[in-house]
Amino acid sequence: MTSYLSVRDLVVHFPTIDGIVKATDGLSYEVERGKTLGIVGESGSGKSVSSSAILGLHRGTNAKVSGEILLDGDDLLQLNDEQMRQHRGSDVAMIFQDPLSAMHPYYTVGNQIAEAYLVHNRVGKKAARARAIEMLDRVGIPQPDRRVDDYPHQFSGGMRQRAMIAMGLINNPGLLIADEPTTALDVTVQAQILDLLQDLQREFNSAIIIITHDLGVVAEMADDVLVMYAGRAVEYGPCKEILTHPEMPYTWGLLSSVPDLSADTNAKLIPIRGNPPSLLSPPPGCAFNPRCDHRDKVPGDLCTTQVPDLTTARSGGNHVKRCHLANPDEVYATEVLPEIAPDLAKETP
């Protein structure tokens, strides 16, 4: 029994004159219908690139994509362009970060939403328009029968993202990929959009992949979390596990960078030092080693010579991590947690 979406050993490489950019290197994950996978990581960690590969958006470019992307048992990478096109927007839909630039400025919102319906259904323009109004109503646009003829610039940011969601869900896709859907929106609107996505997920029973760098979004939405670093999964498991018992120093870094609203307002944020690595020539060994504070706890030069395998975490279950540390759970509990959440560390001795 395989999951609805099962990505196995996905590789996306971009050959350039300077060498091969390894945007995604051996990525595997699964998503069930009705479940949400959160993919987190810094900019340039391969989150968007790997998800675009599911839709085949790299076709026609010079990208080299290999591995397996099984959607309901079909390997999407084996399909020809026309077969892939049939899947786009019908089984797999994607919504993007900035809804203003993601919508064509010269066509009405209704036209663009109806277009998505017309491609995959044998219906007339009138029926498609009626369906577009229905979807706009469903995503909470007031007076949808009038707003359907508005242009994107006449919508507010939140309404545009709602319209994008309506466009994505109009064909009732089994999988919705949301690429940083709330990044360009203000905080109150973010919460509304996330609630909407959850409501719709319950209604349509679709699988959702939500790409974000906001751990708050992950905590609210995701059932599973995949942490990516330099094109690879560095930690993957159930959301609760990852947020409470993270075993990879990069995940610790991400958690440390979240501002704590209950703490002293003058408290400094704790960023991860250094910059994300170049995907053209990533550091040897564990790609995170130059930025890692816990390298000295690993005997020898393992961190700089050998890429750690994805191994089952100490907490067990489906939780896997990519780290050479022998006792990451102890290091986290004794060194990291007291620093980022002293209250929490005291409660759990």
Binding site: R88, A102, A116, M164, M167
Partner: peptide, 14 residues
Amino acid sequence: SEDYLRTAKAKGLA
């Protein structure tokens, strides 16, 4: 190279 063309492609347009 505009974002809205990626959207058009993602919709499954020919």
